[in-house]
Amino acid sequence: MSPLSGYLLLSAFLFSIGLAGALTRRNAILVLIGIELMLNAANLNFIAFWRYGPHPEALTGVMFAIFSISVAAAEAAVGLSIILAVYRHSRTTNLDQLNSMKG
């Protein structure tokens, strides 16, 4: 097995862990963390393909990973503040109880 497929398998496993967590956990914060894990798996793919790809001097994979990390940070900040606002409104972060959008 080549090193690239090792990294790709690890990335696929990370994605599956994040997906399982996002689907099964009922706390909104943990669902957000699961989504972050899936984004991180994509970042690992970018870096692995940059390292073992044909044109590493163009730095495309590194740039993709840096911009993806920035977008993920913005997403986490906005998502966590939405969770905070929802908690202030309905006093729970359990997604099974948040089944109504009306106040």
Binding site: Y7, L10, L44, I47, W50, R51, G61, V62, A65
Partner: peptide
């Protein structure tokens, strides 16, 4: 892992 792949900055 990123650092091991040569992307220290990332």
């Amino acid at each position: 892992l990123y650092m091991q792949l040569g992307a220290q900055f990332v």
